[in-house]
Design a protein around this nucleic acid. Structure first.
Lengths: 258, 258
DNA sequence: CTAAAAATGTTGCAAGCGCAATATTTATCC
DNA sequence: GGATAAATATTGCGCTTGCAACATTTTTAG
């Protein structure tokens, strides 16, 4: 990476703080290079997630969620598709419970764009923030001890409060899915999920295929308690067998609506 | 303005929450209208400052109104000093209740750096986030309806939950301070503040001098209920008179500790 | 110093976009 | 219900962009 190139790309990023969008021609003129060079710069910066391309230019990268690791970013498209598929399943809902986790945040973002006049209960900071974009959605945040890395409330208060409500759907993420059921890395979170399930008519689990065939400390659901799994790849082996045995509806996000 | 047009433009704005940029062709296909119609929509939305055009599409508008970040920047030095002064007054505290607002966030930051092994109840996301830096502080977030612009929970659930707790200090911000007492621009917030006061042994109000001699809809405290006002300038006239009459301890942040 | 690698420039063309003028449909109001 | 206004569609043309292939310059490394 040449000095000139690094400096130019840094300058482009800086420019984006002053303008909402930049055009390739302008950048080329400004830096005295060809448009093709700028185009290559933008492509590289996009690759690194530093900005987003538009036709003829670039814009700032969308603000990423706190602690978005590389591994998480890998599955961002899968999650977006899972989110779309999920929203299609809950069009009739009035009251929802949403768990924490990055996949549920994607679902929340989809809900905020496509749904209206509903009530959502959540213990996740991220979910609440995303939903609040839509003023017709009533967001009720659950109490509890604030768990910083998860950005969510957990503990006895959370669970006790949940017991005062009922919902149409519980939409939950997972750290692992195995024949044993769904589990989360955080025991405190799984206890909240478990309660959400009990207080909801139906339980939907959203998780990409990277969660298949792994188990984590907090097992919060066995498959017979789950109504639907929304994911991006066909499960196989023992996991698939369990889903079928327990009549869990499987919804693949790359399939069109039935 | 036709119904269809309004809905379409609203949908376009909503879509921008998912994607950093939109392209006219895609929008046209999505809404089953011609590209020219979308172009007109985008031009109108741009006119209204709701988004920014790009060649072939649109991106989100950059925040132009003085929002949270701007508000925080205002009087930041004064607030930092107020925060330091406040923490000096609550060294003995075990349990605190913290309201929302930018001044209380500063106080929270100070608490996170200087105090340890305490429990804090708050309805503000900002306060919770800042406090969570310190692992020895137990942060309990209150439930309620999420109020996006304030970044806090409000409503009946918040108040009911608060009634199950007691604290040593309630530390509250204010939009206005007058001889009538302390008031907030948001009625829902002031109801929460009011309850926090009732559930705490002592009430501390933190506010810079720009709040002097103004009143807002949600009056949550008269001065005889307040134990201490921490601010950056000496109040005058009627306000000072009231503070004295009600034996409110006045603590100026530019004074050294007594 | 020199060769390989990286970065940048140039060119041509297909596809995409903006814009204005005009036509057509849809909504609104009396 | 019909006149009028608003909203949308259509069309044509000139300009802009994306892209790929290839040439040239600059940088890097042995």
């Amino acid at each position: 990476m040449s000095r000139a190139k690094t400096a130019r790309q840094a300058k482009i990023m800086a420019e984006l703080n002053n303008a909402p969008s930049l055009r390739i021609v302008d950048l080329a003129r400004l830096h005295n290079v060809s448009t093709e060079t700028i185009r290559r710069d933008l492509d590289e910066l996009t690759q690194g997630g530093h900005l987003n391309r538009t036709y003829g230019g670039a814009v700032r990268a969308i603000a990423t969620e706190p602690s978005l690791t590389e591994r998480h970013r890998l599955y961002i498209n899968e999650r977006e598709r899972i989110a779309r598929a999920t929203v299609q399943l809950i069009e009739d809902a009035q009251i929802l419970m949403l768990g924490s986790g990055s996949t549920t945040v994607h679902v929340a973002r989809r809900i905020a764009t496509e749904m209206k006049d509903i009530t959502v209960l959540t213990h996740s900071f991220g979910v609440a923030t995303v939903l609040s974009i839509n003023p017709t959605i009533r967001v009720i945040v659950l109490p509890g001890e604030y768990h910083a890395t998860e950005g969510a409330m957990v503990g006895a208060h959370t669970i006790a409060f949940l017991n005062g409500f009922s919902a149409d759907y519980a939409i939950l993420g997972a750290s692992g899915l195995s024949d044993d059921g769904a589990s989360d890395a955080l025991i405190d979170c799984s206890a909240v999920y478990s309660t959400m399930m009990q207080r909801s008519s139906k339980t939907l689990i959203v998780a990409d295929h990277s969660k298949f065939n792994s188990t984590f400390p907090g097992r919060y659901a066995s498959w017979h308690q789950v109504d639907c799994l929304i994911t991006d790849q066909q499960p196989t082996g023992k996991l698939l067998q369990c889903l079928n045995q327990n009549k869990v509806t499987l919804r693949l996000s790359n399939e069109p609506v039935a």
